[in-house]
Design a binder for these strands. Structure first.
Length: 611
RNA sequence: GCGCCGGUGGUCUAGUGGUAGGACCUGAGCCUUCCAAGCUCAUGGCCCGGGUUCGAAUCCCGGCCGGCGCACCA
């Protein structure tokens, strides 16, 4: 990693943020989509620089979370049919009902108001009209100003984008609000692919859609976003991960407990300590917090502006047992970058209930077990006429009873309760058989550990944490100290004068053939070209000058220090590869090759002839 | 979605009821230079719709977009 110079000016400087967004727009990192048509709120296009940066982030994520962990990657559709979201719970929980106070203009969750005022536990599933009448009947008042809300319309806010699959409206579909569902719905096939062995992990990088009520702050809250998600399927009774690889990874944690105590400063610990102390309850979660922490740092996130915060009760998603967010500090605010959630068996159980396939895996026992199984066969020809419409329920209850408490069936008769009604059932009408069978294992519904990353927000964080300003003779200069591993352009190549154009272009062609992202620039003066590259975060500049003809060397300039070394053209490919991969840093080059400039960029280099 | 503020070349910005300047950027040529300040020239703009008016980029209304606050963020 290239060493980073002084951090950006401290504090929540809105001006800096505006200048960063302006830079992003001007230099092609990101800008609002379809500006010619007035744009569309919450939609941004990544320009050439931004797309390259984002692609680098995605590739690095894939390398770390899929390839390096032995997890696989899939590519599911963004549109999924309605039943999927009925099962996942998104149809219910994505449907927020809002009511607005006519007096003070504040909006409130209508279902929550009703739950507070009326004797209702769950108002979320009720239709809006019913909520309206409940507000009227219970004379619910605005919590903000006290005015009566009676008669105000309750509006549905469906945060999923709806669409129609095929002609007509018979087959509604939705744009996925998270990439995860594309993995869960096809769990049976993915489990088959994994040969039924837990744990296994499936990743996906792709778009997700949320019809946000109020998109904000450029690409931090958008309606179409890119997620990189890993769904790790683990045996709930199985062992945890091998923590060795990340045991010493540093974590800045802010637990739910600490937050309830009013604490807002994270404390420094390690993965191992967090597990041993029980701060992070699930070892898989802890493992991926460690992986995430190291990965973020390698991407260029400032470790001092990164923390892991546990969700407090009530903050968690409907599916989550526990969740830790990775948050980065961006101009004074903490922004969620990722969530590492323990989703328990929520997702697979839900799909198992709704779909007609197996959302479990078979776990073999170490040793086959011999079990006595009690089977109940109620005589429906007796029960039917006797209990009428309740007969089926009575039979079900008898079967359940046999599993729970078989002795009760030993007597002459037994009492079962169905919907609050007691039935005396003559055990003579119930055939009870007990057989001994051998069970070699059982079906278990895996638990899901989900590290879920927001790619757009990380791109923004990398830009923000890399943003540098300094003032030279009253003129503001900006640069992006992006890590060479993610910088959109690794190096720019300049001819010092027109006489070196051909040579410089030949070097560009050679570097491009080697797979490096390289720019060529011969316009204006040399300083202007350096600054142009600084502004988009190009870490290195190669300048071909008259000496190149004589000795086959060029200058290689480091963006962060503006230092230059003279290196042989023949060594460029190897050196740039090493710098990009982090195998070397520029300081090590300065120790090996002749240093040229004075490093502060404020004066021309010494007489080239003297070098 | 509500409230406040705003929207002028690519970017930043000045400005007036009579259709607009500046800076930077960008392009061309000159210069041949190692850190954005050399010279000349050039391209390029009043967010959209309606209203008032002889005339609107300017005033009014609506929309769209942005920033902030509230709410929301599964």
């Amino acid at each position: 990693m290239t060493e980073n110079p002084a951090p950006a000016p401290e504090g929540a400087d809105v001006d800096v943020r505006e200048r960063l967004v302006e830079l992003a727009k001007r230099r092609g990192f990101f800008f609002r989509t379809a500006g010619a048509y007035g744009g569309a709120a919450g939609f941004y296009t990544f320009g050439p620089e931004g797309a390259a940066l984002k692609r680098a982030v995605e590739n690095a994520w894939r390398d770390r979370f899929a390839v390096a962990e032995g997890n696989v990657e899939i590519d599911a559709p963004t549109v999924l049919p309605e039943p999927v979201f009925e099962a996942s719970g998104h149809l219910d929980t994505f449907d927020d009902m809002l009511v607005e106070c006519a007096d003070c203009g504040t909006s409130h969750r209508a279902d929550h108001l009703v739950e507070d005022h009326a004797d209702i536990e769950e108002a979320e599933g009720l239709p809006p009209e019913e909520i309206e009448s409940l507000i009227r009947d219970d004379e619910v008042a605005c919590p903000a100003c006290g005015a009566a809300l009676s008669g105000e319309p309750v509006e549905d806010f469906n945060l999923m984008f709806e669409t129609a699959i095929g002609p007509g409206s018979g087959s509604p579909g939705y744009l996925r609000p998270e990439t995860a569902q594309g993995i869960f719905v096809d769990f049976p096939r993915l489990a088959e692919y994994a040969r039924g062995q837990l744990p296994f992990g499936v990743t996906q990088i792709g778009r997700a859609y949320r019809n946000e009520i109020s998109p904000r702050r450029s690409i931090l809250r958008v309606r179409e976003l890119t997620q990189a998600e890993l769904e790790l399927f683990v045996d709930p009774e199985g062992g945890g991960p091998d923590l060795a690889g990340v045991a010493d990874a540093e974590l800045r944690l802010l637990s739910a407990e600490a937050q309830l105590d009013g604490e807002s400063e994270p404390y420094e610990t390690t993965v191992r300590e967090a597990v041993d102390a029980g701060t992070v309850g699930n070892e898989w979660v802890a493992y991926y917090l460690g992986v995430a922490s190291e990965w973020y740092e390698s991407m260029g996130v400032d470790p001092d502006r990164l923390r892991f915060r546990q969700h407090v009760a009530g903050e968690r998603a409907h599916y989550a047992v526990d969740c830790w967010d990775a948050e980065s500090e961006v101009d004074g605010d903490w922004v969620e970058l990722a969530g590492v959630a323990d989703r328990g068996d929520y997702d697979l159980s839900k799909h198992r209930e709704h779909a007609d396939e197996r959302f479990s895996v078979f776990r073999q026992y170490d040793e086959a077990r011999t079990v006595e199984r009690t089977d109940v066969d109620p005589d429906m020809s007796e029960l039917g006429p006797r209990y009428g419409g309740d007969a089926e329920a009575v039979a079900d209850e008898l079967r359940a009873l046999a599993g729970r408490d078989p002795e009760t069936l030993d007597g002459e008769s037994v009492t079962v309760t169905v919907d609050g009604t007691d039935y005396q059932v003559d055990t003579g009408h119930v055939e009870v058989t007990t057989e001994t069978t051998t069970e070699t294992g059982e079906h278990v519904v895996p638990h899901v550990i989900e590290p879920s990353f927001g790619v757009d927000r990380l791109v923004y964080t990398l830009l923000d944490h890399a943003y540098r300003e300094d003032e030279v003779e009253g003129e503001r200069r900006t640069s992006l100290a992006l890590d060479p591993s993610v910088a959109p352009t690794l190096a720019a190549v300049f001819p010092l004068t027109d006489g070196e154009r051909d040579r410089a272009e030949a070097i560009v062609a050679e570097l491009r053939a080697e797979g490096f992202a390289v720019e060529y620039d011969d316009s204006g003066n040399i300083g202007r070209r350096y600054r142009r590259q600084d502004e988009v975060g190009t870490p290195f500049c190669v300048t071909v000058d008259p000496d190149t003809h004589a000795d086959g060397t060029v200058t290689l300039r480091d963006r962060n220090t503006t230092e230059q070394v003279r290196v042989p053209v023949d060594a460029l490919v190897a050196l740039l590869a090493a710098l990009r991969n982090g195998d070397r840093d520029f300081a090590s080059l300065a120790a090996e090759y002749p240093v040229v400039g004075d490093g502060d960029g404020s004066a021309p280099a010494p007489d080239p002839g003297g070098e």
